[in-house]
Simulated assay, not measured.
Amino acid sequence: MLSDVLVVTALMSAGVVYGTDVFFAVVGRAALEEARDESVTDVMGRLHRYGDARMPVFGALGLLSTLGLVFAAGFGSAASTWALVALAGLLTQLAAYVVVARPVNTILTAAAAQGNVALASRPLQRRWDSVIVLRALGLAAGMAGLALAAISLR
């Protein structure tokens, strides 16, 4: 029963982050390439202001419930092994976010808050974009691992 609750919680929480990152990998990145620099600074700064404040709840809940699943499913079981795969994917996304994306988010958020839309946002956005596919793929591995863990629990 605990394993079922953990896998559902992990899937739903990590799924929020997965959907966001896949959207930006597939749609957002291309749209931002075509946008004016001022628009990128203003809109992305404001998106990151809210995203960086609200998304960690989903990421942390996804990570913690996945880690709990590793143990609750019975260490060494198929479900536990798939949960470890999921955990590796989630941690890959988190590392790319913390090392590359978060510093860019901080700069764009400050620029938007100060009304500094003249900031040279294009190089910053390209740096952020440089890891979005890796983040989406890490999360895809996480989601697949969680789905396979759920199936293994049956």
Rank of each mutant, 00 (worst) to 15 (best):
A110P: 02
L87W: 05
L84E: 11
L90V: 10
A30L: 08
R135L: 01
V104F: 03
L87T: 12
L61Q: 05
A83S: 10
M55H: 01
S121H: 04
A112S: 15
A118K: 10
S39C: 00
Y50M: 15
G76I: 03
A72K: 06
E33I: 03
R127Y: 00
V85M: 00
D37I: 01
R54V: 14
L94A: 15
L137R: 01
A30F: 01
L32F: 06
Q114S: 15
G45Q: 11
H48K: 02
M55K: 01
D129S: 09
L94R: 10
E34F: 02
T81V: 11
L61V: 14
F71W: 14
T41E: 07
P103V: 03
V131N: 01
S80T: 03
L124T: 03
V43E: 06
A96Y: 14
G45C: 06
S80I: 02
S77Y: 00
E34R: 12
T66M: 05
T66P: 11
A30H: 09
A30D: 09
R54M: 14
E34L: 12
M55T: 10
G62F: 06
A78R: 10
A30I: 05
A110C: 06
G74E: 08
V22H: 05
W82Q: 01
P123I: 07
S130P: 06
G68D: 11
R126T: 08
G74T: 09
F23G: 08
A79Q: 03
A113W: 00
G51C: 09
G51W: 04
F23S: 09
G45W: 02
L84G: 13
R126I: 06
V40P: 01
V40H: 03
T109G: 01
S121I: 00
T92Y: 04
Y97S: 15
A96Q: 11
L137N: 03
A112Y: 00
A95S: 12
V131P: 05
R49D: 11
G28F: 02
T81P: 01
A120I: 02
T81K: 07
A110I: 02
L32A: 11
V27D: 05
F75Q: 12
T81A: 09
G138L: 10
Q93D: 15
D52K: 10
